[in-house]
């Protein structure tokens, strides 16, 4: 069963499977511990500040390394660790390129250190050329990020990052979670499929997490130079962006690609496929699949283009213009015969032989063109017949090809 079509093969809104976008992907970390051996202290017990245990981080040995690969491996125990003693305003960043555009559903970080006092999450929609914040976390939003600690998200600000003090607490001292759901609390989330603003809001090609500030050494009960940011797991949940036109995202040599339905094409099903340009492309919604519609070319062309002007004139029903009409046809739908040809009334317009030559007489007719429907050529004075091949009554053939029939005296 194809989720993009119902039992009667009518097109319907469909979305691809939910994916763990971070699993196995490479994360770029700006400051990983152990370039020179360092002592890093963390806690064994999530609630006991005296359960401190210190380890050496040294990248020269695998056993004492805590690389960014540990963020996205399948092992929930391994932990990436930042360099020790990072002090505000210096920060540490984790950057995760996703490889294509996705619609984010959630992002979560599981810590092996205490959660940061301040951190921010950014996204890029252009493969890392520009970044926009999507969430700030801080016990001191105003002081660190210049933002108020957020309350309710209004419709006017539902596409803006807010700052929260949730998930910034010192405890649990280890194993704490910071999770972000880009649609949570947004007024238009219930009608996400109809909200271009939120569709844009959840779209990302890359994710960046910026750790801005650690809890103070005093709060942590240890010396600052042994404190660090530590993350066991970075998870990013989302779906391929396929605009409601695909239920499957296929792994191709160039990366994940939507398996487009509804006669759409492109890596995100973001355009109509060739010859399906009778209506403008639109994202599908649950109430209307907005499938692309084939142009009506009466089997005489397999190419067409879309005209918004014609579409508007037709009352938003049809805007396709056939191009390259064959079999001596012409017109927007290849629905009449081109000049010099006439319709064969015995054949349907879809027939390859629906248009036949006028066969106007080279001397008796004024031109090679004839009436499309009747086939009547335009005759010179004194000439008659469908193809202008005879002299009319009262006329006789002359020797002049310019005036082939003259009146009988």
């Amino acid at each position: 069963e194809d989720p993009c079509y119902d039992a009667k093969q009518r097109p319907r809104y469909c979305i691809p499977d939910f994916l763990d976008l971070a699993l196995g992907r490479e994360v770029q970390a700006s400051g990983t511990c152990g370039k020179v051996p360092q002592k890093l202290c963390s806690y064994q017990d999530p609630t006991n500040i005296t359960s401190r245990k210190c380890l050496i981080c040294d990248q020269s040995r695998a056993k004492t390394s805590y690389p960014p690969a540990y963020l996205t491996d399948a092992d929930a125990q391994t932990c990436w660790k930042s360099e020790a003693g990072v002090k505000f305003p210096k920060n540490v960043t984790l950057t995760l390129p996703l490889g294509r555009r996705f619609e984010l559903v959630y992002l979560s970080l599981r810590f092996c250190s205490p959660r940061p006092q301040s951190m921010a999450v950014y996204k890029s929609m252009d493969h890392g050329r520009s970044w926009v914040p999507i969430q700030y976390y801080s016990t001191q939003c105003r002081r660190v990020y210049g933002l108020p600690t957020s309350g309710t998200i209004t419709k006017a600000m539902e596409h803006e990052a807010s700052c929260t003090d949730y998930q910034t607490g010192l405890k649990p001292l280890t194993g704490g979670l910071v999770a972000f759901m880009p649609l949570a609390g947004r007024p238009s989330a219930r009608r996400f499929e109809y909200s271009p603003v939120l569709q844009d809001w959840v779209t990302a090609t890359d994710i960046r997490v910026v750790f801005s500030r650690l809890h103070t050494g005093q709060e942590l009960g240890m010396r600052r130079k042994t404190t660090f940011y530590g993350v066991t797991e970075l998870q990013v949940g989302g779906r391929c962006k396929c605009n409601g036109h695909a239920s499957h995202c296929a792994s191709m040599p160039e990366g994940l690609t939507c398996d487009c339905r509804h006669h759409t094409a492109g890596p995100e099903c973001d355009r109509c496929k060739a010859f399906y340009h009778d209506r403008p492309w639109q994202r599908a919604t649950p109430s209307n699949s907005h499938e692309c519609v084939a142009c009506e070319c009466n089997l005489h062309s397999h190419r067409c283009r879309f005209s918004m002007e014609l579409y508007a004139l037709s009352g938003r029903r049809s805007g396709g213009i056939c191009t390259g009409c064959r079999h001596n046809t012409a017109g927007r739908h290849c629905h009449y015969c081109k000049q010099g040809y006439k319709r064969d009334p015995g054949k349907p317009i879809t027939s390859r032989r629906s248009c036949k030559p006028c066969q106007c007489h080279p001397v008796g007719a004024i031109s090679a063109m004839c009436n499309q429907t009747t086939g009547q050529c335009q005759c010179k004075i004194g000439v008659t017949g469908l193809t202008c091949n005879r002299c009319a009554l009262g006329f006789q053939q002359s020797r002049s090809a310019y005036m082939p029939c003259v009146r009988i005296r």
């Binding site: 080279p362 001397v363 091949n389 005879r390 009554l393 053939q397 020797r399 002049s400 090809a401 029939c405």
Partner: peptide
């Protein structure tokens, strides 16, 4: 009455060579 079709051989093509069909 049906008139006979134009006889192409009767025309003097001297000045209308461009109208003369290829034989």
């Amino acid at each position: 009455d049906v008139m006979p079709t134009l006889d192409m051989t009767l025309f003097d093509w001297t000045d209308y060579e461009d109208l003369k069909p290829e034989s």
